[in-house]
């Protein structure tokens, strides 16, 4: 039975060291490269007809565009327009990372906490900078709920501050944990199918049915988590721009 943890192993493909730091091109980097290539090819080739009445491929590209554009408009408003490329990139990167990771044998870079945390940290820092740039020091009042009695500030400000600081952690752990858990379950169920199926055909069918159901569920989770990650980024952006 394969070790369910093994699939998360980072394997260097091209060894690379810059200033003594190991920055090898790995299986994780390869998946990122594939995601970037596929996303770019998909969105550019599908839009090539530039048709007024779109075909299947062009419709798909437009659906992605409008989905994210609407998400940004609903959650942030018109001020969020200039962050659209970033939010769109974020969504496509996470979505295709999750989905391609489900291909048997492929690597899921979103199952690594450092990757999701790096993205969450960029969102966190970026949103905080936007907040201070727009509102100056007034942005600090974000940590004190409007209308609350002054005395409550002693209690409320640390809570608000803590929940704010925990945003990148919850954001990154949510995606990482979902992906990791899902892939572990899939591998374990797959191992059951093989070991029980080797024993006798019929017992192997039961975990296979489970595996199929869970694979379908994981497909949904892959899309849902990409959506959640992006929506939360939009909500944080909204907080920075509008302060509630």
């Amino acid at each position: 039975m394969t070790n369910p943890i093994e699939q998360f192993q980072i394997k260097p493909i091209i060894d690379l060291h810059i200033g003594g730091v190991d920055v090898s091109f790995t299986n994780s980097s390869l998946m990122m490269a594939i995601v970037v290539t596929v996303t770019t090819l998909f969105l550019t080739l599908s839009m090539r007809p530039r048709a007024v009445v779109p075909g299947r491929w062009q419709s798909m590209a437009e659906v992605f565009y409008e989905f994210i554009a609407n998400m940004l408009r609903d959650n942030v408003g018109s001020e969020g327009r200039k962050y659209f490329p970033f939010i769109f990139t974020l969504f496509m990167f996470v979505l295709l990372g999750n989905l391609f990771g489900l291909i048997p044998g492929a690597f899921t870079f979103t199952s690594h906490l450092i990757v999701t945390f790096a993205m969450a940290a960029v969102i966190f820092v970026g949103v905080t900078v936007i907040g201070f740039l727009r509102h100056g020091l007034h942005f600090l009042s974000f940590f004190f709920p409007k209308g609350a009695p002054m005395a409550m500030g002693v209690l409320l400000v640390p809570i608000e501050l803590l929940s704010y600081v925990f945003r990148p952690i919850s954001l990154s752990v949510r995606l990482f944990a979902n992906m990791t858990a899902g892939h572990i379950i899939l591998t374990i169920l797959g191992g059951f199918v093989v070991s029980l199926g080797a024993l006798y055909v019929v017992p192997g069918v039961v975990p296979l049915a489970f595996l199929s159901a869970v694979a379908l569920l994981e497909l949904g989770i892959a899309m849902l988590q990409a959506y959640v990650f992006t929506v939360l980024a939009c909500i944080y952006l909204h907080d920075a721009i509008h302060m509630h």
Binding site: I10, P12, L16, I18, V21, D22, V23, S24, F25, T26, S28, S29, M32, A33, V35, V36, T89, F93, F109, H112, I114, V115, A118, M119
Partner: peptide
Amino acid sequence: ASQVFWLVIFF
């Protein structure tokens, strides 16, 4: 280091 490095590049 490697993961973040390539994440930054590809993102």
